[in-house]
Design a protein around this nucleic acid. Structure first.
Lengths: 329, 329
DNA sequence: CTGTTAGCGCTTTCAG
DNA sequence: CTGAAAGCGCTAACAG
């Protein structure tokens, strides 16, 4: 049953050439004659040959693997964050057709420093950092270039992020343009670079619209949305538009609004950030600033594969507004 | 900078033993004397030695990798399904502390047959099948034992699933017990084993409660929930309880109810299935039958690691009801 | 253009 | 209990 997998030697024999030549055609080196190449490929087909990745890795001294590194307060919670699976999806799509694989490390917040050092040592093609705070990212990147942070990080850590400020600005402008009078915000944590970008975009757009920025401290979670909104409602009962730091927060806002008896969008318009599937699943469907997570993860992956990252590699991707019912005029 | 990683040879030298002995202590073979063992471990610490996985894989003839195989109608969509990330989370938690890694394959529906054959050939420790239809799973398992399907599959394919029927039954009983008079369902696709289990649980519980089972065909997606509910509402305006095949479907139900002007739970009570984070994020928070996805994925992973799967390996895990606001009396 | 020859770092008989 | 030696399957000089 368990027939042994064919090796390069077998392929060579079947094609009447040496193992080395077979290797050359398979790895795409072009120092091989047309007819030989054909014979080798035919043998490959025939035998159903697939290279042994471990052997190749050992011989090349490098394993074709991209490391995805996620820090989470509670590793068990990763399942409930739509962001992560979008990242995975993006990486995988960039890897499709490549021999390169993705390796996932989910690290508990407390053990992050140690584990990160361990992982830095074994990175091969490159690593994507998700939710790794700037200090740790800087430390990681000192041990291992070939790294990209999703979201702005420490200065010399290569990164790719969405236009957080511009996206938030667009959201606020949209709300005022469609007739809202008092737009407030539930922000993210102050130490999160994405959150601060959105916060400043909100602030400047508010000022430009002739309003003083009003916002509640929050976080990228449901509870923050709920309590933030309750407080805003108490302090500013006349608010009629809310910008939430992310979709999850926005779901909390939605709940608090519902519980306070206000209707969305009739009484209060709502805009989230991320445009994750939560936005389309919410009732009413939620207007949200689209963060092209899959695309950013794919870009980062491709940059890593092409080895074109470096301390000055930084990308900022557009974050267009997706308009849905929750902000209907 | 880029100091070469220490090898077993280095460790051996530092400990004053041969490479072979060093290997023995590290792999846990116990044919080594206490003092020698200690010296080797000390050398390991000191040098910060970590085994080269590729070399080990080559020497052992087996790579310590678990393959996660997901089929999706549209590989780009994987990012928007909370189920997948729960699976990943479960696998990773079972792998924590092991040298074993997880490898992810997302396969587009149309290329499934081919790609599946390719993957079956390279499976090492074992593979987890997600959303792989029975025929394909059977074919896969013919090429490679060491596989577990998440969700019931073809007869001889090892599988682990939740108590779908019992869970659905509990949901229906709960609704009638808390005073509802007419409980209907939005089902999943008839060719999905989880969906059919829930469907039959719904049916038998309805009958036991003295009602004829009423349900709409649907699917595990938002749209199915919306249209299914609209139809049910049209045919049975007096319904006051809905059981949805999964949380995503339930979100659709919620939307349709809202748009029809019914309030949840006052006019209609709603119960979903999965108890994914969607359930807690919905407004109102949703009662849902908990499918212990992380736990099931972890169990499957552990069984694969221990090599205790086989054609008759089947597990059924309890699916307890999580009661929340959407079904409040 | 192609074959020969060394290893990559580790595990695993086989002797001692 | 420990060392020596033979590969695992592949790539990469180095010759021809």
């Amino acid at each position: 049953m368990e027939a042994k997998r064919p090796t390069l030697e077998d392929v060579g024999r079947a094609a009447g050439v040496s193992r080395a030549t077979a290797s050359r055609v398979i790895t795409g080196a072009h120092r091989v004659s047309e007819p030989t190449r054909n014979r080798v490929w035919r043998a490959v087909e025939q035998l159903g040959y697939h290279p042994d990745l471990a052997a190749r890795a050992l011989a090349r001294g490098r394993n074709d693997v991209i490391d995805l590194i996620i820090i989470d307060e509670d590793a068990g919670q990763v399942g409930s964050n739509p962001y992560y699976s979008r990242v995975v999806s993006g990486i995988l799509s960039a890897l499709a057709g490549t021999e390169t694989q993705m390796r996932t490390h989910v690290i508990d917040e407390p053990e992050a420093p140690t584990r990160l050092d361990d992982v830095a040592r074994i990175v091969e093609v490159g690593a994507l950092l998700i939710n790794v705070p700037p200090e740790l990212a800087a430390r990681f990147s000192a041990r291992c270039d070939r790294v990209v942070s999703l979201g702005l990080s420490a200065p010399h850590v290569p990164s790719i992020e969405a236009e957080n400020a511009a996206g938030a600005r667009a959201a606020v402008e949209h709300l005022y343009r469609t007739g809202r009078r008092k737009v407030v915000a539930v922000h993210g944590k102050p130490n999160n670079s994405c959150a601060t970008g959105r916060r400043s975009g909100f602030a400047s757009a508010s000022i430009d619209a002739g309003h003083e920025p009003i916002g509640a401290e929050g976080g990228f979670c449901l509870e923050a949305g709920v309590t933030g909104t309750q407080q805003l409602l108490a302090d500013h009962p006349d608010l009629d538009g809310i910008f939430a730091a992310c979709d999850l927060t926005a779901m909390g806002v939605l709940r608090a609004l519902n519980e306070s008896g206000r209707r969305v969008p009739d009484d209060v318009a709502l805009v989230g950030f991320d445009d994750s599937f939560l936005a389309s699943v919410a009732t009413p469907a939620m207007t949200s600033v689209r963060q092209p997570v899959e695309h950013m993860a794919a870009m980062a992956t491709r940059a890593l594969l092409a080895d074109e990252t470096g301390p000055s590699w930084h990308r900022v991707e557009p974050a267009p507004l997706q308009i849905r019912r929750s902000s209907a005029a």
